[in-house]
Write a protein that binds this DNA or RNA. Structure first.
Lengths: 297, 297
DNA sequence: TAAAAATACTCCATAGGTATTTTAT
DNA sequence: ATAAAATACCTATGGAGTATTTTTA
């Protein structure tokens, strides 16, 4: 049995006349009779009662009609669904980002614009650290990631650098520096630094360490926090001070002050990464709207 | 596009390997490649990504898979549904009966047994007078009817006579005759008779009239009631007396007595009718269990 | 008798087979 | 080097055409 049989049957069931149905199907009447006959043989029961002027459906024909219609409809829907998916109109895009990038306006804008342009694409969002995101990307559990580019990236990923972001110092409101509009790093030399674990937030951690050394000191005491929001909360709890990307200052926790840095200052680097030779049209569509430049970190 | 393409596609999508899929489909690998290629051309997008060791689904292929599966499934379901309908396992049977037959135990038993044997067949029940039932049967709005056979029936129906049923006299409990176990018709010669309208319950009406004449009188005063239950209610309201099929005495209305008739007594004739040359297997199944004998009324 | 479906037959398009080449790791 | 898909080419099944017969109201 083929869709041809179902299509022919459905047309005859509509017309209740083989000759007219054959006309509509752009075939002649005899082959139509033959195909219906073959279908009836396959089923083992007549689908039509042949009368002198046309035909009528048997109960078997009536029962066949409903499901046959669904079959033909599903077949057509399958083609349309495939075509839509191929054009990138539908589908899933798995997007990962670091907790420190979660507040970056470029990421928010890209998500908003992409959803506006492709409203039927489902975005699966994952927040995690750069190492985890990279691993997920390479193992095909994520399609696009917003990550902090470090020293050695795998070479089978494609990187799109976003503009570097300034960083700010976060201090408790009760801290003497809280009254100032800006600070230089050296003023923090005796403070306890709340940072991401080196193994996880490696790149931001490194960047801060390097700048402190350039400013002439080595942070003596450090304390790790697993998430960007935890960092701010720990500062609010007066456990120490920290350095965060400027966009993170959107987290307006009571009892915390953000200060601009003058002089030597670390930069928060951000990049979008995809698998190299990525075939997914959704990834292409997403990356097209990322305002970064292609290239190594 | 044919079901073949969908079946082939689904097998490849399961195996993710053309050669293995071809084995399962009992064809060789090249024609499978060709059919998938033709399908992809029809859709306008590749469904598989060809890798060195096997293939994987593209997003278009993934989208296609769901609906393609439904299409194949529906096609198979259509065949099964038709086969079941052809065997009389499913379908609708429209059954009509007169209100005076509604209490006949043969009808109740037949409905019960038929439903027990063919639980998936839906019975549509219609209660109406013989004239209406006959018309509905001939115009294909009913399939089987329990009717009161009269003098001239259409000859394009098939009749199955059921055993004649005795009739009883119904009187109000306050009536002098209510004390007797039985009556003869002549005792009713001065009573008001509650009967079906002649145009509607023609046969039962005629039968009663003929018997009264044979008993030696003509019912002087008559009153019509539209339904068998109304007849009994009118008797209960002391409007008059009536004659009903014995099975109607199941209607145990307060203030009403049923009396056997001795001597000349009318009979309630009942028959099952179907269209002549009826092709429906459901009608055949139903009639097979009707314990009547075939023939004219 | 006429309208419509079935049958008889012919033809060719194409599904499927075999042999071989190409491709990608 | 190897596994697997694509290509080339051939064969033959069967879908569709034309002409005609059968059916039934």
């Amino acid at each position: 049995m083929e869709l041809r049989h179902l299509r022919y049957f459905l047309t005859v069931a509509e017309e209740l006349n083989f000759s007219r149905a054959a006309l509509r199907l752009n075939i002649s009447q005899p082959p139509l009779s033959q195909q219906i006959k073959a279908l009836e043989a396959r089923i083992g029961a007549p689908l039509f009662r042949r009368l002198s002027h046309g035909v009528e459906l048997t109960s078997a024909g009536l029962a066949f009609q409903q499901e046959a219609y669904r079959a033909v409809e599903s077949a057509e829907k399958a083609v349309l669904a495939a075509q839509r998916a191929a054009r990138g109109v539908t589908g899933n895009l798995r997007l990962g980002f670091t907790s420190s990038a979660a507040f970056n306006p470029l990421l928010a804008a890209r998500i908003r614009d992409f959803q506006r342009e492709w409203p039927e694409v489902r975005l699966d969002l994952v927040e995690n650290n750069t190492l985890y995101l990279l691993e997920s990307l390479l193992e095909d559990r994520l399609d696009v990631i917003y990550m902090r580019p470090g020293i050695h990236q795998p070479d089978n990923i494609e990187l799109y650098r976003l503009p570097d972001e300034a960083m700010k110092v976060v201090v408790p409101a009760t801290h003497p520096l809280a009254q100032q509009k800006s600070v230089n790093l050296l003023q923090l030399k005796d403070e306890l630094f709340i940072l991401f674990p080196a193994a996880v937030g490696l790149t931001l951690f490194d960047e801060i360490m390097i700048c402190c050394r350039a400013a002439g000191f080595e942070p003596k005491r450090t304390q790790v926090a697993p998430q960007m929001s935890s960092v701010v909360n720990f500062v609010a709890a007066e456990m120490g001070v920290s350095l965060v990307p400027a966009s993170v200052s959107q987290i307006q926790v009571h009892n915390v002050r953000y200060l601009d840095i003058v002089g030597i200052s670390p930069l928060a680097r951000l990049a979008v990464a995809t698998r190299r030779h990525e075939p997914s049209i959704l990834v292409k569509h997403f990356v097209q709207g990322v305002s970064g430049k292609k290239g190594r970190a």
